[in-house]
Design a protein around this nucleic acid. Structure first.
Lengths: 343, 343
DNA sequence: GTTTTTGTTGGAACCGTTTTCGGTAACGTT
DNA sequence: AACGTTACCGAAAACGGTTCCAACAAAAAC
C-alpha cells in the first residue's frame, strides 16, 4: 500500500499541492476557510507529511539540537529539561540526540546540521580536543557544556560552560586535609587524558602536595576501562579491591557521587563506619548522595545555572549574533555526614 | 557557501553520480579501484551525504528504532544497551529515539516509520490503551516492553514483554504480611489508570485482603502529579508528609526503588530505624537499592532477559515473519536489610 | 569472425516536499 | 470602461540522493 502524499490530499481537496503546503505551514497567503477545510481533510485521512522530503527542501528551520554522549548520566538528565524549556521560550524546536559511545559526536553533529538545518548545537559530554578540522566545518554556533574549555578548541563560534574541576577538586581535598586526613584514597577513571576525571585527579594531587603530603601511588585506584564508567557497581568493586590491599586510608575521594555510593557500601560491608572510621566524598551533587545514609559530602555543580547559561549563550549567538562567551562556574563544597558524622 | 553534493564528488572524480552512489553503498556493480578512488576523494573533501535525500528515495532500510518515553529512567538504560547489541548481531541499525513526556509515542512512531523506513519498533514506556486506530496504521512489527499487555491493544503485529506487576507486587506484600506487618503504607503514583503503578497498587490491595487486612486509605500516599515522577526526592517528600500525620505504619512499600530510597532517608531523619522500626520495600531491582544502607528489599525485574526477549521477539517477526508472541516474566523477590535487619 | 556474456559505467527519472513565479478573480479607483 | 491592487491559488522547478536502464567495452562462447 502506497503511503499517502501531499498530492493525494490536494486531489481530495480539489486544490493544488502548494495550497495544501501553505495550509500546513501556516503560510499567510491562504484563505482561512480553505485552510481549515484542508486541515480537516488531513486530520480525517491521517496523512503524515514526509519529514525527509520536507527537510530536503527547506533551507532553514529554527531548531537546535542537544547532542548527549552518555544519556542516562543523571547529571545530563537534569540539564536537558532546562535547556529544552529555554528553547521553547524562544520558540525554537529542540531535538535531543543521544550519541552512542562508539560514535563520534562531531560526525553526528555535521550530519544533523545539514539534515535538520540546525541553527545551533549544545554538546553534553564528548571530547573535542583533537578535532579542530571538524569543528571548523561545523558552521553553526555551538556550546560545549562540562566537557572541556572553548579555548582548547581553537575555532570560532565555540563557547563552553563548565565548572573548574581542578579548583573544585582541590577545594574538596583541601577540606579533607584540614580535617586532619593524611592518607586519602582516590577513585578515578582509567584514561587520564580524555576524561573529566583528569582535572579532578590533578586537583587532588595539588591539594595533597600543598599540604605537604606526598601522593601515594598505592592509594590511587583507577577504574578498569571496560567496566561501565561511573556506575555504583564499579565504585563498589573498586573499593572492595582497594580494601584487600589494606592500605589504611582514612578518607576516600571518588570523582563521581555514584562511585562514592558504591564505596560507602563496600566500606560498610567491611565493617568500616563511613564518617567515623573513614571519610568519603564524591563529586557532582546528585540527588543520590544527598539521600544516602550517610549523606555524602560532595562538590555540587550548579546544574540549573549551568544549563540556563548554556542555553542563554547559545541563543545569544544565534539570535543576536553575539560573540561566543564562555563561562566557568563555581562549584559548591557540600559537607555532609560522610565526612562529618553528627557528633 | 553551498553545501557539497554527490554531484560535486562525481565531477571531482570524473565519473557519473550513480557510480559515486555505488561506491558509498558498497554496491557490487563497481570496479574496486574506482570505488577506492572515489572513497578517497570523499574522505579528503569531507563530503557528508544528505540523509534526508537518501531517506526520501530509499524504500527499505534494515533499521529498527527504540522509542523511549522517559529516557533517564535507569531501568530503561539497562535495556537499551542489550537491545542495541542484539540489533547489531542481525546487522540492523538501531536508532534510539527519546520521546518527550508531552509527545505522543505513536505519532512519533508513525512519522519515523515513513521517514526512516523502519522495519520494526520497540517501545519502552508509554501508553497504548486508547489508540487502536494509530496502532493499526503502524504497519510494522513492534513490541511494547514493560508498558502493558499486547492483548489490550487489539491489533496484529503487536507483542509485549512484561513482568506481571500485579502478581509480583502481591508476592512482595504477601511477604511483608507474613513478616507480621499489619499496617503497610504504600507510595504510589498519582494517576491510577495509565501508570505502571496501577497494577502494583492492586497487587498490594489484594495481598492485604487475602491476609484479612482492610486497606486503610490513610496509609496510601500518592505522588502529586506535577512532581517529577519516580525521583528519590519525591519519595522523600511524600514520606515526610506521611510522617506528619503519624499513622503508625510498620512497613512501607514504594512502587519504585527510587521512591523507597527517598523514604528510607525520610524515616532515618525522623529517627526511625529502617529495618528494625519500620520495614521498607521497593520495586524494580535497581543498582541503587542494592547498595543503599540498608540495602532495600525489592522485586527484581530481570532486565537483561526482558531486553533480550524483547529484541528476539521483534527480530523473529521481522526476519522470520513469525506471529507476535508476548511474554510475561517472573520477577524475583529479593529480601534485603530494609525488611530483615541482620540479626 | 560473429554473437553472447560479463563487468562497469553514465543519464535521467523519481522520491515528496517547499517555494518561486506568474495567473486569475474580485474589488475599488479614476 | 479601463486600470491598479489585493488576495488567493496552481504549475513547475528545485532539493540531493538512489536506481532503473541503456550503453559500451572486453572477454568468452560459438
Amino acid at each position: 500500500m502506497r503511503t499517502m502524499t501531499i498530492r493525494d490530499i490536494a486531489r481530495k481537496c480539489k486544490v493544488g499541492v502548494s495550497t495544501v503546503s501553505r495550509a500546513m505551514n501556516n503560510h499567510p497567503d491562504i484563505n482561512p476557510e480553505t485552510k481549515e477545510m484542508i486541515l480537516r481533510v488531513i486530520e480525517e485521512s491521517g496523512y503524515i507529511p514526509n519529514k525527509s522530503a520536507r527537510n530536503l527542501k527547506i533551507t532553514e528551520s529554527d531548531t537546535v539540537a542537544i547532542l548527549v554522549k552518555g544519556i542516562g548520566n543523571p547529571f545530563f538528565s537534569g540539564m536537558i529539561d532546562i535547556i529544552q524549556k529555554k528553547a521553547q521560550q524562544h520558540s525554537y524546536a529542540c531535538i535531543l540526540q543521544p550519541v552512542e559511545p562508539h560514535e563520534n559526536e562531531l560526525d553526528k553533529a555535521l550530519e544533523m546540521v545539514q539534515e535538520k538545518k540546525l541553527k545551533g548545537i549544545i554538546f553534553l559530554g564528548g571530547n573535542f580536543r583533537h578535532h579542530q578540522e571538524k569543528l571548523k566545518k561545523l558552521r553553526v554556533p555551538f556550546v560545549v557544556s562540562t566537557a572541556g574549555r572553548a579555548e582548547d578548541f581553537g575555532v570560532p563560534m565555540a563557547a563552553s560552560v563548565s565548572v573548574d574541576d581542578f579548583a573544585e577538586s582541590y577545594k574538596l581535598v583541601d577540606y579533607l586535609c584540614r580535617q586532619g586526613h593524611k592518607r586519602i584514597a582516590m577513585l578515578t577513571s582509567a584514561d587520564t587524558d580524555l576524561s573529566v576525571g583528569k582535572l579532578r585527579f590533578e586537583g587532588y594531587l595539588k591539594a595533597l602536595r600543598d599540604h605537604g603530603i606526598q601522593p601515594d601511588e598505592n592509594l590511587i585506584f583507577k577504574l578498569r576501562g571496560d567496566s561501565d564508567h561511573f556506575s555504583i557497581t564499579s565504585g563498589y568493586e573498586l573499593t572492595k579491591r582497594a580494601l584487600t590491599q589494606h592500605c589504611d586510608f582514612t578518607a576516600l575521594f571518588a570523582v563521581a557521587d555514584t562511585l562514592a555510593v558504591g564505596a560507602c557500601r563496600a566500606l560498610h560491608e567491611a565493617g568500616i563506619r563511613v564518617g567515623r572510621d573513614c571519610a568519603v566524598a564524591g563529586y557532582d551533587g546528585l540527588e543520590l548522595g544527598q539521600f544516602y545514609c550517610p549523606s555524602i559530602t560532595t562538590i555540587r555543580q550548579p546544574v540549573e545555572e549551568i544549563a540556563k547559561e548554556t542555553a542563554d549563550i547559545l541563543f545569544d549567538m544565534i539570535l543576536d549574533g553575539k560573540e561566543p562567551e564562555s563561562r566557568t562556574f563555581q562549584g559548591e563544597l557540600v559537607v555532609r555526614e560522610s565526612t562529618e558524622p553528627a557528633e
